[in-house]
């Protein structure tokens, strides 16, 4: 399974869920709190955290593209 992560900085409202859910994948810019993507193709062990971040994001600013490795 591969997972590609994209973020929409324009939509981001800096609620911080992504940073608390998946701190190795997301950070926030110091000057305005907007999401900063650390890893656009996180390893499988982080996938669940990343899905949680996308679920909790109140602005739908996290876009996930999942592809099954066997397909």
């Amino acid at each position: 399974m591969t997972l590609k992560v994209e973020v929409d900085e324009q939509r981001c409202v800096s609620a911080g869920h992504c940073v608390t859910s998946a701190p190795d994948v997301f950070d926030q810019r110091d000057d305005d709190g907007v999401v900063h993507l650390l890893d656009g193709a996180p390893p499988e062990r982080r996938h669940e955290q990343v899905r949680e971040a996308a679920l909790l994001c109140p602005a739908a600013a996290i876009l996930l593209r999942e592809r099954d490795g066997s397909a």
Partner: peptide, 14 residues
């Protein structure tokens, strides 16, 4: 968004 972004840096997780 303009106003909120003036305040968000104070409320980041860090």
């Amino acid at each position: 968004r303009r106003l909120r972004r003036m305040l968000t840096s104070a409320f980041t997780v860090k």
